[in-house]
């Protein structure tokens, strides 16, 4: 059994003295793990960092075996992000979320493309907005998409500022007013229509709370897990930045 595919490094676990078990998000083979010999060598250490784009050759005697990866660097996407606390936190959060959210060896080309685009966009100025949108898109790709087109109660399409934690559907200001303590805030930049102004840091925090709630309820908790520490660190970092 063998194949070749492009992949994004998600995580690395030490194995033996110089090897490691790498988890990659590949285009055609989904989240796939494999043993990398010499993963901690000077040649491969820098390549096998979460977020980097690599070309992987996987080989095993039987399909159900762990198998071996031979890794070649394609793009060192993590290097420019290392000195930026927010961008690095977003990258590690995305990799950690994918590691708990995706089943092994199930092709998820849509999520691969989304993540590939995210790792590129994290170097841009609007990285925080891109990250929150990536989480919303991840939820949708996993089958738990938010319905933000119209108010769940009245059907109106304007002034949508809440989301129901039960249904994941948008709720208008007027319809949601009596229940506002129990509803989640919907930042304008997540609405499926063009926005005139860039999101404020408060909008980003609201967006992270919204997607974080559904990621926890729909993805992490059913699997007996909690959201990864990296995700919590990103949320508290953005929270602090917004209140400064």
């Amino acid at each position: 059994m063998d194949w070749r595919d492009d992949g994004i490094v998600l995580s690395l676990r030490k194995h033996g003295e110089s090897g490691a078990i790498a988890a990659l998000l590949t285009r055609d083979h989904g989240r796939h793990a494999g043993l990398v010999r010499g993963a901690r060598s000077a040649k491969l250490r820098g390549v096998l960092q979460p977020g980097n784009l690599v070309r992987a050759d996987w080989r095993a005697r039987l399909a159900e075996h762990l198998g071996h990866f031979t890794i070649e660097a394609l793009e060192a996407r993590v290097a420019p992000l290392l000195t930026s606390p927010g961008r690095l936190a977003a990258l590690t959060s995305a990799c950690a979320l994918l590691d708990i959210a995706l089943p092994e060896r199930a092709p998820v080309p849509e999520i691969y493309d989304l993540t590939d685009a995210l790792t590129e966009r994290l170097a841009d100025d609007d990285w925080a907005e891109a990250y929150v949108k990536w989480e919303a898109a991840l939820l949708a790709a996993l089958g738990f998409g938010l319905d933000l087109n119209a108010c769940a109660a009245t059907g109106v399409t304007d002034d949508l500022i809440f989301v129901s934690p039960k249904s994941g559907r948008a709720v208008s200001r007027e319809a949601g007013a009596p229940y506002k303590e129990r509803l989640l805030r919907l930042p304008g930049f997540l609405l499926p229509r063009p926005q005139t102004a860039p999101p404020t840091p408060e909008d980003v925090v609201r967006g992270l709370r919204l997607t974080g709630y559904f990621l926890n309820e729909q993805v992490a908790r059913p699997g007996g897990q909690t959201l990864p520490d990296a995700r919590s660190r990103l949320a508290s970092m953005m929270d602090r930045d917004a209140t400064r």
């Binding site: 820098g46 960092q49 660097a73 793009e75 060192a76 993590v78 290097a79 290392l82 000195t83």
Partner: peptide, 11 residues
């Protein structure tokens, strides 16, 4: 040098 080191050096 690998791409990452070159990128860090340029930065």
């Amino acid at each position: 040098l690998d791409d990452g080191t070159l990128s860090a050096a340029l930065q």
